[in-house]
Write a protein that binds this DNA or RNA. Sequence first.
DNA 1: CTTTCAGGTAAACATATGTAAGTGCGGGAC
DNA 2: GTCCCGCACTTACATATGTTTACCTGAAAG
Lengths: 239, 239
Amino acid sequence: MSNPLILKLEQRDRLSADEKRVLEGAISRVRVVAADEDIAREGERPSESSLLLDGFAARYKIFSNGRRQITAVHVPGDFVDLHSFLLKTMDHGVLALTPCRIAAVPHATLEKITDEYPHLTRLLWLNTLIDGAIHREWLTVMGRLSATAHMAHFVCELFLRLQIVGRTDGDTIQIPLTQAELGDTLGLSTVHVNRVLQELRKEGLIRWQGDALTVLDWERLKAVGEFTSTYLNIQKENR
Amino acid sequence: MSNPLILKLEQRDRLSADEKRVLEGAISRVRVVAADEDIAREGERPSESSLLLDGFAARYKIFSNGRRQITAVHVPGDFVDLHSFLLKTMDHGVLALTPCRIAAVPHATLEKITDEYPHLTRLLWLNTLIDGAIHREWLTVMGRLSATAHMAHFVCELFLRLQIVGRTDGDTIQIPLTQAELGDTLGLSTVHVNRVLQELRKEGLIRWQGDALTVLDWERLKAVGEFTSTYLNIQKENR
DNA sequence: CTTTCAGGTAAACATATGTAAGTGCGGGAC
DNA sequence: GTCCCGCACTTACATATGTTTACCTGAAAG
């Protein structure tokens, strides 16, 4: 079974056999986290970073009044807290949305990689830069698009990101988010999430049954969400 | 005159004399960009990254309908497009909000640093990780706080970030943003920015005259904006 | 089987924020 | 000096989205 991180990186650059071996070897152990459990908690100082091998996870912050905002949704191949290697203290929590298989990569190993494998280091750095690019895109969409457009955009993005790591089934993907969690992701109320989904369905853009989301009209969905994929940096380059 | 990037990094870790020399030497040339000019444009593939030495800059994206969203406001010491070293193509523009002095750092030099100076590499990586942390914080604030709280939060953040690089004058900082630009930053209309500012002034939290913003009641401003500074990672650590 | 409960859906109503269209001031251009 | 013109500021009005409450369904639990 191929490592989804390697799959993800190979969309962006060439990896030498040696580098692949180092990546595979960086995994110290694999653990399973149940749905709705925390993978990491705000305030912690992890000594290893978590690579998501299977399942969905989300980064979130909770305000004093209990309101929650999800700042990232992660799919297999994503490092959910690679940044803790250098930021040291978690400034947000990470939650398993589904049961998750997680590989732990010790920070000591990452430090060794930065000492000895410059190109691989750049690719890990790249990984966090793509996270950042996604954050920026979310900011623009949240700030300037309607709720409906925002939802359409989110669906487009998740579809592409799952496609990269081979987790699509034709035009269908699994989105294991409740409407409440979707609200926390898009900054909307649950009720409004429901309204928006009805609208997208009525327009014949998507079908959503249980966890299974099917894109019925890709072109119009992209148009509604003003989606372009450049920010995902799905391009082979010498980095 | 001390380099604001070195000032910024030294709040987060120790820099050796050698590393400081490398950083100083990385600057190929300094240019001046007039206010309202682009420092970088969407779609470009820069061969060097821009370090802001003086002035204010903003990253922005423009939608087809002309609506603009600012995703980051940069102050001296910030690398406005360090990510272009690895992302290659700019997925957004960078705008000079005031006249800016900008140091160009060739990507070739950055590559050399990643090959030869692992610790310095980690600090540059850290720099982009802090950008990411700020993006996440903006996402939570934009998604879950009121416009007033959002504005208060923004003021708190900018104040601290300017303080780090020695650009505060007591309780006063320079914020060279028009209310329209503030709206583009916070995802609000110009009219509502005005309303919110009036409210913060009436509450005695801030004074804003021209470019000069004075924080009158730091504690209450932080409370209104639900601001805590952890995400800025202003802590010396071994990284 | 029944009970329970999470999650999707719905309607009625409340409100934060946006839109459109202006006024007025102050500083730069000439 | 006068004339612009960008920018802060206002008002009146429109609407997207939030809040509250409730109902319904299917699936898990007992």
